[in-house]
């Protein structure tokens, strides 16, 4: 083991090929609501315990359930108002549990990508065959309920294995959201040689990190979204940037948190050279127009 996961070659931000987004946009902004289902009584995973308290952990479970009962609709309203479609990071069992929510997203032309089957079923400890079966389950479930092809992946609760990217590419997916090394898409090396990319997702803009890890207050979340946007928008004029806002309706959809978020995305939508995209659209545009330049640039920089 070299200590390097072997996913991509170094390609410094300075001196890269420029990305141009559709219609002369200088930034692609995408919003990725994690629409999740956490199980009341999940099986034990040897590497990670789903709940902090003995089962039933009714407080933590019900906190997550708030997203599907209440928070989702507040988030949906805010996104509708600002004219953003979502790219849903979906625990695909949600299609079975709450198809009502899936329909609200599908009717708006939102994208669905997979975030595993349940957020309480981790890929840790799975064999490649087991992990392939959850990828296929995801593709089948999303096709059955929405007619869409599965193109993107965010590992369930960010649980990865060293072969995960290889499997995703072999199964015909286009992009991963699990890598945080860049503000632009990146060609990802996979065994099969498929053209597979990383689309920038975000920990820093993610409401779980903001609220559950960093314990920021809701108005500060609004502030950092605007600051992140302002910087990436300016830089995007010369580089072509991506900004992602990952959400969890159980957090952002709380009554004291929804307005600062709504205001921040209205602010973003008020700028001209913004491409309000989905993850799939960003991946496809990059693959068609910039993948080769980036791959060649990285090979040279090596």
């Amino acid at each position: 083991m070299s200590g390097d996961p072997g996913l991509y070659d170094y390609l410094p931000y300075k001196g890269r090929p420029k990305i141009t987004w559709p219609n002369g946009a200088q930034i692609a902004v995408w919003i990725a609501p994690n629409i999740e289902f956490y199980e009341y009584e999940p099986p034990k995973n040897p590497l990670r315990t789903p709940w902090g308290r003995p089962i039933p952990d009714v407080l933590a479970y019900s906190h997550r359930d708030y997203g599907n009962r209440v928070g989702f609709r507040r988030m949906l309203d805010a996104m509708d108002e600002a004219g953003f479609r979502g790219s849903v990071s979906l625990n695909v069992a949600m299609c079975d549990h709450h198809p009502e929510i899936i329909k609200l997203c599908a009717d708006r032309g939102w994208e669905f990508f997979s975030h595993g089957v349940y957020n309480t079923r981790y890929a840790y400890g799975m064999s490649p065959e087991q992990e392939r079966s959850i990828i296929r389950d995801s593709a089948d479930t999303i096709r059955k309920w929405t007619g869409q092809k599965l193109d993107g992946w965010l590992a369930p609760a960010l649980s990865n294995n060293a072969w995960t990217m290889d499997l995703l590419a072999e199964e015909g997916l286009l992009y991963t959201c699990d890598l945080f090394h860049d503000d632009q898409p990146t060609p990802i090396r996979v065994k099969s040689g498929h053209r597979f990319v990383s689309v920038p997702y975000s920990l820093e803009m993610n409401d779980t990190i903001v609220y559950n890890t960093n314990s920021y207050d809701p108005r500060h979340y609004g502030t950092i979204i605007r600051r992140q946007f302002d910087q990436l928008y300016r830089e995007g004029a010369t580089s072509g940037t991506v900004m992602c806002i990952p959400l969890h309706p159980y957090l952002v959809g709380q009554p004291h948190r929804i307005e600062p978020f709504a205001e921040a995305i209205r602010y973003i939508a008020g700028h001209d050279r913004v491409w309000k995209a989905t993850g799939r659209e960003i991946a496809q545009h990059f693959l068609a127009n910039h993948y080769d330049d980036f791959a060649a640039g990285a090979a040279q920089a090596r």
């Binding site: 289902f37 199980e39 009341y40 009584e41 099986p43 995973n45 040897p46 359930d65 069992a93 079975d96 549990h97 709450h98 198809p99 089957v117 349940y118 079923r121 400890g125 799975m126 064999s127 065959e129 087991q130 079966s133 959850i134």
Partner: peptide, 18 residues
């Protein structure tokens, strides 16, 4: 690999899982 029950979902159904 994980025990097979990790890929079984007895409560994957409409509504809640309880």
């Amino acid at each position: 690999p994980l025990p097979e029950d990790h890929l079984e979902y007895p409560r994957r159904r409409h509504g809640m899982d309880h």
